[in-house]
Design a protein around this nucleic acid. Structure first.
Lengths: 241, 241
DNA sequence: GAGTGGTCTAGACCACGTT
DNA sequence: ACGTGGTCTAGACCACTCT
């Protein structure tokens, strides 16, 4: 038997950090280490598992990042009281999402203008009262059917070269992902009932519930873009942990 | 000046893994290393930065987990073509969320019954056609105002001791988090327009858009619980990356 | 076959918060 | 003050995969 997978337990003596992590998980689930309780030091565990302390550290760090453990310098490591689970969902790159389902992707620029935005948009982008921004309205389609309506404002100061882009072959979404590096962003999920305009755009009935994702992305200097995505009726955004 | 923070650059010679990570980020953002391009080996970088290879590894591993880099054994490390950003948002523990805003938390069990569920719920929980489950309907309130309506099914086989719980002092949500360890789950965001029943429960107008979160959690053995949360009108779920 | 990332070790020093 | 996690090192071997 040449069974030597990456995570292995050798005669009960744990070696890899994955195996140690699994063992710790087991003890937590079995309530051997109860929520809120202190678990042994890294040094003790290293001794028990017959490995280096760094290996134990690697295992426990992962569990702490998951939220299963709470670690503090002098205080030691505790089992988290409420396992604060972090869901990690991928930010949908619209084209990949559609083509990944085997559908054909399309988009149409409905509006393109440069003007001083309304106050709420100014607040989100943190721009002055007289600064004009690029405003784009785009409809993305899957197999020709409306998929999502995008209402986007772009900070021209942060993305000067966008003036030369016509968005004939590449969508605003992809162009920005490709051309503008960003450090972070805010995401907000909400819901609304379709107005007549939205119902017409997204080919749904008046008043249907629509999922909305507001998102603004920024880099070190400024807020680059703020966008509202209104998805077609029945759209579900799915993720796992 | 005693400026010795955790992430520091010493005379241009980078030492900590955080500093190395920041430097690599800078080079990617500055397009010094372009998307899709191969970056130097760990060994080379270690030499350049004057540190051990393990330190470089630590820095690059983090960036790979973020999705900014793609690493393969023999092939080397590349800058990711489409920075597949994944947002990491905390699963809201309802009580913490409400109390964290300084509001008072409350809940009321509206329905409690044990019966064989409809087919769609059976499918989600992967239970047989004759297996009875616990069904709970709960309304959570913030400062007395409706916050979220919870429609939950619980697999009694996975959580036997729940029959003795009256949910007078602890909500179903918290009880499950506390008593049942779980390994993973599915999350689905969607939206609906309030029915008259929902409008009455959540004190909103008929037809308002409501955010919906469907979630099922499982452990190694079985699906433990499946729940639909319907949030009050105007609710926004926010996260950052 | 050979090169690259993945991991482990044994030891060391440091940062930080509890005591 | 002191104990615990956080990190770094220098070296080693392994796993994977591209050529």
């Amino acid at each position: 038997m040449t069974s030597s997978t990456t995570s292995s337990t050798i005669n009960g003596t744990t070696k890899t950090w994955q195996a140690i992590q699994a063992e710790v998980r087991k003890r937590i689930n079995a309530r051997l280490w109860k929520p809120g309780a202190l678990i042994p030091h890294e040094a003790d565990l290293a001794l028990e598992f017959g490995c280096a302390r760094a290996t134990v550290n690697r295992a426990l760090r992962g569990l702490a990042e998951e939220g299963l453990l709470t670690r503090q310098r002098r205080a030691g490591t505790r089992v988290a009281l409420n396992p604060v689970r972090h869901a990690r969902f991928e930010i949908p790159v619209i084209r990949s999402e559609i083509e990944g389902r085997g559908q054909s992707f399309g988009f149409a620029i409905l509006k393109r203008e440069t003007l001083v935005p309304p106050p709420d948009v100014r607040a989100r982008l943190k721009t002055g009262a007289k600064v004009a921004l690029l405003h784009l309205e785009t409809l993305y389609t899957a197999d020709g059917a409306p998929h999502v309506f995008e209402d986007r404002w772009i900070n021209l100061a942060a993305v000067p070269s966008i003036d030369e882009e016509t968005f004939v072959t590449i969508s605003p979404n992809e162009w920005l992902v490709r051309e503008v590096p960003f450090d972070g962003g805010d995401f907000t999920f909400s819901a609304l009932a379709a107005t007549s305009k939205q119902a017409a755009l997204l080919a749904c009935e008046l008043g249907q519930g629509l999922l909305v994702l507001d998102r603004s992305t920024h880099n070190a200097q400024a807020v680059v873009t703020s966008v509202r995505l209104i998805f077609h009726a029945g759209y579900r955004m799915h993720t796992q942990i």
